[in-house]
């Protein structure tokens, strides 16, 4: 009896395997791609100034001992509008926020900032998504916590909401 069962075992295994394949096809893999750069130094990049009244962004700006938020956003990004009020409140609490605008233009950004407010101390235009790829970012909005030595300590994927603020503030406090 047990011999017969053993003979069926390979068929059962193949059946299970195909069931797994079939389930995989039914539920396509659509996951959030976390950056592989968390825990590593911010890679070298530079994004030229997007606005006449604010400087652009380079990796050298992050090594002066002050932890910062690095916000990857775009004026064409609809959900990005929702996080601006939250970012503005964090700015009022003394958080320095650096913006990198992906696939954007100065006029479009000017409109976006006039309509929603400007939580950024610096805004860089990321042409050709070069900085975004350097960060290992796969979309907008994404927010990185960068410590005072220029190391990426955290990646927040998606809109920053009120609920995320305590965690981010805590990390900024720790990330000296």
């Amino acid at each position: 009896m047990s011999r017969k069962l053993l003979l069926w075992l390979p068929f059962a295994l193949v059946f299970v395997l195909f069931a797994v394949f079939w389930l995989g096809l039914k539920n396509p893999d659509d996951r959030i791609i976390a950056s592989n750069m968390v825990g590593k130094p911010l890679p070298e990049f530079s994004a030229r100034a997007a606005m006449p009244d604010r400087p652009g962004v380079t990796s050298a700006d992050f090594t002066d001992g002050k932890p910062r938020l690095l916000n990857v956003f775009a004026s064409w990004c609809v959900p990005c509008v929702r996080e601006v009020p939250v970012l503005l409140r964090m700015q009022q609490q003394g958080v320095e926020i650096v913006g990198v605008a992906v696939h954007d233009s100065s006029p479009a950004l000017a409109t976006f900032l006039a309509q929603n407010g400007n939580p950024y101390d610096r805004i860089g235009l990321d042409e050709g998504g070069r900085a975004q790829i350097e960060f290992g970012s796969s979309g907008v909005p994404e927010t990185f916590v960068v410590d005072g030595k220029g190391r990426i300590v955290h990646q927040h994927i998606g809109v920053v909401t009120e609920q995320d603020v305590p965690q981010l503030l805590g990390m900024l406090g720790k990330a000296q």
Binding site: P28, Q132, G139
Partner: peptide
């Protein structure tokens, strides 16, 4: 990384072009 499951050679996403 945007239209997952597609290679960058066949994707229209901006990031794939980058």
């Amino acid at each position: 990384v945007v239209c997952q499951g597609q290679p960058i050679s066949g994707s229209n996403a901006d990031l794939a072009g980058d």
